[in-house]
């Protein structure tokens, strides 16, 4: 493949590339790769700190799903909003959050995004347009529609992105939200990260249609299926959906077919899937795949790839140390922030 591409002129290559590679600058692509590393390293760090007893509660890791989070967010600005899920670390970093404040939140510290009140399942970063992870499956769907309605009523040229998992596609909120967004032609992009299991229950056992995207037809919107482990495919689909939304043509449902290589949460013993299945998906890891593709296309050298990975690792180490050294909230403040006045 490398040889073939080298034989062609770079102009020829680019003309045949996915939209994402034509629209994103090499710098933006490198940033995207760095974000994927940050997500992976953040979550590995989170897992490690949990095992060492430094954190509390539960967490839901998205290891293996990084291309979906970063690809979808590639065309967005801070004026665009996202609603996220219980498996939301990736969306948060993809949208531009600071890993320091994320780690601090994860450790329940006053310096965290939610001042230690929310934890892993509620991390938000309103300044970068992240309206928050959500502990309720499907909870963010109507909220994303509300954000889109808000943009329309305020005459803003922004879009609302709604991340949810395959599990949420059987919640009533999914159907109510898609219907309203379509009836009102709102600038929303619904992004189903289909990692194939709602906790332990596979989509085959839970969902009457083969693809979640098949449900788009019921709400008169395009249903697009992409390889969720392919950054360029995801980013290109996101660009098309965002463009459509901004043209006032209404919502799109994108289904990113992907996989979480870790369990649902800390309690998962992986009784519902095989080691072979997990291993097959580990082989499709989106990060080395994206890295190799960028190198192959000449956007990146192997040395630069290593620098990016090392820079991400240093940032995560720093974030971890910041969180460890940060103060906990004062118990006297337990009822602060319940209401504004």
């Amino acid at each position: 493949m490398d040889l073939m591409e080298k034989a062609m002129s770079s102009a020829e290559v680019r003309a045949n590339l996915p939209e994402a590679y034509r629209r994103l600058s090499p710098d933006q692509l490198k940033q995207a790769l760095k974000k994927m590393h940050l997500i992976r390293l953040f979550e590995e760090g989170a897992e490690d700190s949990y095992q060492r007893g430094l954190t509390y509660g539960t967490m839901h890791l998205s290891i293996g799903q990084e291309a979906s989070a970063v690809g979808i967010c590639a065309p967005l600005t801070d004026a665009d909003t996202i609603t996220s899920t219980h498996r939301g670390h990736g969306h948060c970093i993809a949208k531009g959050a600071d890993p320091k404040k994320m780690f601090a939140e994860f450790f329940g510290k006053e310096t965290g995004y939610c001042r230690g009140r929310g934890g892993s399942m509620h991390i938000a970063d309103v300044k970068t347009g992240n309206l928050g992870a959500n502990g309720i499956v499907g909870g963010g769907l109507p909220i994303a529609v509300g954000a889109a309605l808000s943009m329309k009523l305020q005459g803003k040229d922004s879009v609302s992105i709604c991340f949810f998992g395959d599990g949420a596609n059987n919640e009533g909120a999914f159907h109510e939200a898609l219907n309203m967004a379509s009836v009102w032609k709102l600038p929303v992009v619904f992004v189903c990260e289909n990692n194939q299991y709602g906790m332990s229950t596979s989509t085959e056992r839970s969902t009457a249609v083969k693809n979640v995207a098949d449900r788009a037809v019921a709400y008169s919107m395009p249903g697009v299926i992409v390889d969720g482990n392919d950054f360029a495919a995801v980013a290109s689909a996101s660009m098309a959906a965002v463009d459509r939304a901004k043209r006032g043509e209404g919502p799109t449902l994108i289904e990113c077919k992907t996989y979480r290589t870790r369990g649902h949460s800390r309690s998962d013993r992986n009784r519902y899937r095989t080691k072979e299945e997990i291993e097959a998906w580990v082989q499709r890891d989106p990060i080395p795949r994206f890295e190799q593709e960028l190198i192959g296309l000449g956007f990146l050298t192997a040395a630069e790839a290593e620098e990016i990975r090392a820079a991400a690792a240093a940032e995560i180490d720093e974030a971890y140390e910041f969180a460890k050294a940060s103060p906990s909230p004062d118990p006297a403040d337990v009822t602060r922030f319940v209401t504004t006045v």
Partner: peptide, 14 residues
């Protein structure tokens, strides 16, 4: 459910 959620989303975005 959807209507109430749309209200929440609109409220937090201005």
């Amino acid at each position: 459910l959807g209507g109430a959620g749309v209200a929440v989303g609109a409220a937090v975005t201005g």
